[in-house]
Amino acid sequence: MIDRVFECGFEVLKKIQKTQVKQIDEAAKMIAEAFINDHTFYVSGSGHSHTVAEEFYARAGGLAFVVPILTTELTLNEHPTKSSYLERLSGYAKILVDLYKISENDVVLIASNSGRNAYPIELALEAKDRGAKVIAITSVQHSNATASRHSSGKHLLDIADIVIDNCGVLGDSAIHLEGLDSAMCPTSSMANAFIVQAISTQCAAYILKKGITPPVFVSLNCEGSENLNHEYFEKYTRIYKK
């Protein structure tokens, strides 16, 4: 069964590589252009999808200019289902859009496996209303199989300028064990991690093509690297617009 887990993961990743490279490339180019033109790149997700923000943000080999919309309420830190309730709550995303001052020509990447809850949909709508561009990482199959929980009746994929399919199945979990009703091995986390790194690396390549050195964090756990990230942390970390 361990081999099956690896096979399941590889199957999803190969499908993403085969079907989503164009969308990933477009996302990378959009983010690079935003950075080059002094606009802001935000990333957010709720529940387990918040890990996409963490995958982008403040880690070795990652772009230093990423601004996460990563409040505690959207994570699993305080309670395992708190974020599940809050992501269905209308009005919360607008508060964050106002707080972070998302504005014209910014780019907002939103991760939501189902793409059906109020928070990711409202975040996308509010961002677009302010002239920002929206990238979605979502499961197209799951979205198409479930009803929206937002008053608009839309899913995240209906709003985003670029939709990257994580190629997951309905319910996310992809392996069925004999004698167990619930499926196991959710694939969205492993898929999202690869998508994030593909976007980040391609984005850096586009920035370099413009003759600009992209700010990239190094590991603080390597000898002599303790001070290398200081400038980036001072300039970019959780930056709020004036």
Rank of each mutant, 00 (worst) to 15 (best):
I69H: 02
L125V: 06
V108C: 07
T81Q: 10
H142T: 06
A111W: 02
S148M: 06
A32K: 00
A64H: 05
V66Q: 02
A136P: 04
I69G: 00
R59F: 08
G45M: 04
D106M: 07
F65V: 04
N105W: 03
L86Q: 07
I31K: 03
M30G: 02
N117I: 05
G45A: 08
P80Y: 09
Y57D: 12
G115K: 00
V140Q: 11
N144H: 15
E54C: 09
K22S: 12
A93C: 11
I159Q: 02
E33W: 00
L156M: 11
K128A: 10
V66R: 01
T72P: 04
N37Q: 11
G62K: 09
I16Y: 01
H142K: 08
D38M: 10
G153K: 07
A136T: 05
I69C: 04
K128R: 13
D38L: 14
R88P: 08
V108Y: 02
K128W: 07
L125N: 00
D158K: 11
S83M: 06
S139Y: 02
F65C: 05
N144F: 14
L13W: 07
S103Y: 07
L70N: 10
E33C: 01
Y85T: 09
N105P: 00
A58H: 12
H142N: 14
T72Y: 08
H48W: 07
A111P: 00
A124D: 03
I137T: 10
D25E: 14
I95M: 11
N37H: 15
G61Q: 12
S143A: 13
I110Y: 01
K82E: 05
Y42G: 01
G61A: 10
A132Y: 01
Y92F: 15
Y100E: 09
P80S: 15
D38S: 11
F35R: 02
G47Y: 01
E87R: 03
L125S: 03
V108W: 01
L157Q: 13
F41S: 01
F65E: 01
A28V: 02
S112I: 03
Q20N: 07
H150K: 07
E55W: 08
T72F: 04
L70A: 09
Y42R: 03
V107H: 00
S44C: 14
K128N: 09
A93K: 00
F56W: 13
T51Y: 15
H150E: 11
Q20I: 04
N105C: 07
A64I: 06
A64M: 06
K82A: 11
H50F: 13
A60S: 11
H79E: 15
R88Q: 13
L76S: 14
T81V: 14
I102R: 00
S90R: 14
T146V: 10
S112C: 12
S84K: 05
N113H: 11
K101T: 11
A58D: 15
L123G: 02
Y92C: 04
R59D: 04
A27V: 07
A60D: 12
L70M: 15
P68Q: 09
H39I: 05
N144V: 08
L89Y: 11
R59A: 09
